[in-house]
Amino acid sequence: MWRSVFAFSALTLFGAGLTGCALNKFEQREPWRDQTEQACNAKRLVETTEFVTPVKEISGPGVCGMLQPYRVTRLGKGTVALKQRVTLACPALTEAEAWLADTIQPAANLYFGQPVAEINAGTYACRGRNNQAGAKLSEHSFGNALDIMSFKLADGYVITVKGGWRGTEAEQGFLREVFLGACARFSTVLAPGSNVFHYDHIHVDLARHDPRGLRRICQPLIKFTPQLGADGVPRATARPRPPERLPAPPQAPIDVEEDDPYGVTPMSARQPARPPAAQLAHGPAPVGRSAPPVAYAAAPRAPVARSPAPRVAAALPPEDFAAEPLSLTAPGLDEPIY
Results as ranks from 00 to 15, higher is better:
F14L: 12
L328W: 11
V178A: 09
P293N: 09
A291R: 10
A299R: 14
A89N: 10
A238I: 13
L175M: 05
L153F: 06
A298N: 08
H198F: 11
L110H: 12
L23Y: 10
F174Y: 12
G164V: 08
S327A: 11
Y296W: 14
W99L: 00
M1E: 09
P240Q: 00
A135E: 13
Y199R: 07
S268Q: 08
E171W: 10
A299V: 10
R241M: 03
A273N: 07
V55F: 12
R129V: 15
K162M: 06
F51I: 04
P69A: 07
G20S: 08
R306C: 01
P234A: 09
A10Q: 12
E47C: 04
P240C: 03
R85F: 03
G60M: 04
E47D: 05
S307A: 13
G193V: 12
L146Y: 10
T53V: 15
L190S: 02
F186G: 02
R212F: 14
G17V: 11
R245P: 02
A322F: 11
A295K: 09
S4T: 15
P249N: 00
T237D: 06
A98Y: 12
Q271C: 02
P286A: 07
R306S: 01
Q271N: 08
S187Y: 14
G173T: 11
L228T: 13
S141M: 07
G62I: 05
W99N: 03
F112D: 00
R241Q: 10
C21K: 11
A98I: 13
E171N: 01
H209V: 00
A298G: 05
A285V: 11
Q35S: 10
T36S: 06
E324R: 12
P91E: 04
T123L: 04
A305H: 11
A39G: 01
F197P: 04
P211N: 06
R3C: 03
A285M: 09
Q114H: 08
R216C: 07
T36C: 03
P325M: 09
K25G: 01
G65T: 13
I58L: 10
R33D: 03
F151H: 01
P286R: 05
A125T: 11
K223A: 14
A278V: 08
